[in-house]
Design a binder for these strands. Sequence first.
DNA 1: AATTAGCACTCAACAATAAAGAGTGCTAAT
DNA 2: ATTAGCACTCTTTATTGTTGAGTGCTAATT
Lengths: 348, 348
Amino acid sequence: MLDERKLKILLAVIDSYIVTGEPIGSRTITKFYDLGVSSATIRNEMSDLEDLGYLNKTHTSSGRVPSDKAYRFYVDNFFQNSIIELDNNKKEQIKKFLKEEYKEIDQLIQDIAKVLSQLTKYTAVALSPQIKETKIKHIQLLQMDENQILVIMVNETGLIKKSTINLDKTISEDNLMYISNYLSKKFKNKTFTEITNEINKDILDDYIEYKNEIKKLIPMLSRTMDDYEGLRVYADGLTNIFEFPEYRDVDKAKEVISLLEDKQKLIFALNNTNLEDIDVKIGEENNNDSMKDLSIISATYNTEGEIVGKIGIIGPKRMNYIELIKTIRTFSESISDIIDDYFNSNER
Amino acid sequence: MLDERKLKILLAVIDSYIVTGEPIGSRTITKFYDLGVSSATIRNEMSDLEDLGYLNKTHTSSGRVPSDKAYRFYVDNFFQNSIIELDNNKKEQIKKFLKEEYKEIDQLIQDIAKVLSQLTKYTAVALSPQIKETKIKHIQLLQMDENQILVIMVNETGLIKKSTINLDKTISEDNLMYISNYLSKKFKNKTFTEITNEINKDILDDYIEYKNEIKKLIPMLSRTMDDYEGLRVYADGLTNIFEFPEYRDVDKAKEVISLLEDKQKLIFALNNTNLEDIDVKIGEENNNDSMKDLSIISATYNTEGEIVGKIGIIGPKRMNYIELIKTIRTFSESISDIIDDYFNSNER
DNA sequence: AATTAGCACTCAACAATAAAGAGTGCTAAT
DNA sequence: ATTAGCACTCTTTATTGTTGAGTGCTAATT
């Protein structure tokens, strides 16, 4: 598609723009990248690359700047090259950044965002585990009102999810305890997806007394798991955005900060990504006008193979994608380990 | 201390500086404030006020700017005038901003910060209720490891507090359940301060079997309640700071944002205040270098008369203190009501 | 004795202008 | 096909001057 020379020029522009943030011209390329042709030739090639949609100008006589399409091309073609060289040393380093022990997994997630932002010098976000995919540890029902009960669910990682449920019938406290114990025993070590699948054929057979109540309860519990309210998102290193010259402008910075304050948007941006290991969204690809000048590199982290949450790096589009992809990959592997440790120390 | 003319001039400077943010000179005062004397006289008076520490200059030939001392004077002397005119209409308005129902009180607290920031156009912070002062609803102990248990405490507002506790002795799951039930029954509807006070004389008499285990447990539970980990602080309206001309400078804005990102510092700043209804900390009074150009107006909110949390407004020192004190007072009254409602709908 | 007019001086903020530098696109020569 | 050369564009930076709001001091006025 692109001949070798065009490719080299495109890479030179991207490479240079990523580090300097300044538009790059033909003469600069001849000076710093050994292409063996004159600036005039490069000028012509760059003009072609602009026509092809890979480069843009900031004003009529300015140098060129990579377009979203250029970054996409870059990431797609050099993604493979960033072979996973999981550096055990680096893992140890990351672990050292985190505390010895966490009482609450949310605290851990929050620190993960902090460490990731410190490590990358970008703004980092971390999405809490999606409880639906982790195993239930305990279920507790508490009488709050005549026909209102508080459901508390604890999962394997110690994350607590609760919700208030309204019933049209009063259940006595003793009976509630009974149901509570039954559900706890029944659902222990199952994920919520498993529960919703098994529920019909299973419970209805072996349990009689509060069959109807429980039958009503299940979809409500499921809905509770489903909604976003339990999803917490933590952003850290907001101020890193100020380090980029393009965000030395207060109004631009303001826009980014207000995006990062909008939890709903953040959650959406992260959940919008593919369920691949690593996902990169460049500028317009974010389907969100306030993110059109930003890129987000996200990764999933898992416990015991199950997908539980996401982490991401947000910054200007001129990111060092290759390097950051490597970093976030190593990082997500590390924290998957750490969460596994957390999980194991609490479970076994 | 200050004669009437000096007072009038001081007030004029403060008044003007609060709205414009610009240093104010003698001629401007003669023009907009009817003092009946010439600018030269005012010039002399201002020079005196500067010597007395109430005014400052930004450069040798600039107008004057109020000092921290001036603001302190202003707040102390006109604090009384801001009589509580609790406007029921306003209360209703505030309620309308919030959702109909909250599943989690933390969600409510978060929204409170948001609404307060929208209402005032300043950055607002809200500190979650301090569980120590609210009544326990339920205690649950869960086996996590051979000698590690997860304690979950639910208070009257539905707030959940949990912590992992290490024991040197293994307690069987059944026995744990037993203790769990005992503690739950025993502590229901008591505040944690009450519990720690009663514990020695009470439990040790009427309970035999796990006396030692429970004895060990109590201080740990108490410490859990005590520490800051359970304290969540939410900041909202970060971008409001950008609206003030003095924070159009990226480096200054950066400083504020990084302060607001530092939960520990925020919690400290809020807990640092007196337990009065309303507390105002001006500039240096914050005992925190990164807050020396900021003021914070904070208020406590309560449920059923018990102090449970704090809210605050953070902004440049040239705040409209009087107006904002009124607002935050009304606001904290309103949310106290709302939290009472929340509490009642969950409890009775 | 307190007040004020008058004046020299200071400083920040703005606007205008110029000069430098990096770049483009086009044409004609290689 | 490539490149040298050139006119032109646009941003950035420095320089300079101007304006306006301010101060502090002194001498005159009330």
